[in-house]
Design a protein around this nucleic acid. Structure first.
Lengths: 132, 132
DNA sequence: TCCTCAACGACATTTATTCTCATTTAAAGT
DNA sequence: ACTTTAAATGAGAATAAATGTCGTTGAGGA
């Protein structure tokens, strides 16, 4: 039950928040924009304002429930935080998003930051690809 | 002389284009937003519209003179194309941008795309770091 | 120098997102 | 269950980045 997940994350279990969480969990697309979520809400006959969708998604991000990505598409997309780190590959032809992990790249990134006297906090790696 | 660089790139050597190119070449910051360029123009007493700055930067990008990057700051930044590929490391504390190259990461990226049946077209890798 | 079309400047418009504020609602207390 | 209250919401205005429109200007070939 989603209400518990929200409580656990320190958020009041309001209707908009429950609905949005459900949509993120049940949607076919793992990566949705705020606009996508809003349209889905409307399709389901819910009365939720767009501003609320943005607010809630940002809160979910702060609470660690979702991750925000800025691909080159001009708007942010959100995905449920699976807890497993991964990067993304975006097909320029179809828009399909593939997730991948590569331990070696992770290590190299950390090493590079260290070499320059920094601690790696986070990173954004997106591969833009096209079908062979 | 910049006018020649523009001609070579297939662009008419207009005053706004020359000025903007000079700014990119002489600025302390290697990475400037359209707004940054615009403000610098105004500081120099030039009469150039903001729309022109955006247009020109986009043309420069198409012509291969500059590269556009979308860091997580919400707006695009542009840098002169040095011809040498590199990725970026952004300090979350100071905003400082460090450039780096890593052949190994490049190879791994290509291999990952291949493994999924794609050709790697380009990529965006940004490390967000903080001082040790 | 003249002519022409690409480029420009000013400003309207679009898109993504955030803000404001009056109203509603979750949930803690009675 | 009912009241209370601070937090959350909805509606729409506001903002920021970027692009479009259109009448005017100017670069560079004739």
């Amino acid at each position: 039950m989603e209400a518990q997940d929200l409580k656990k994350a320190g958020l009041k279990a309001t209707l908009p928040r429950i609905r949005i969480l459900q949509i993120l969990e049940n949607s076919k697309q793992r990566h949705m924009s705020a606009e996508d979520v809003y349209k889905t809400l409307l399709d389901h006959g819910e009365e939720v304002g767009l501003a609320t969708v943005y607010r809630v998604l940002t809160q979910f991000e702060s609470a660690g429930l979702v991750m925000r990505h800025n691909f080159d598409s001009g708007h942010s997309v959100f995905e449920l935080d699976s807890g497993v780190h991964h990067d993304h590959m975006v097909c320029l032809k179809t828009g399909k998003v593939v997730e991948f992990q590569n331990e070696e790249i992770e290590k190299l990134q950390k090493a590079i930051a260290e070499k320059h006297g920094y601690d790696l906090v986070e990173h954004s790696l997106v591969l833009y690809v096209k079908p062979k």
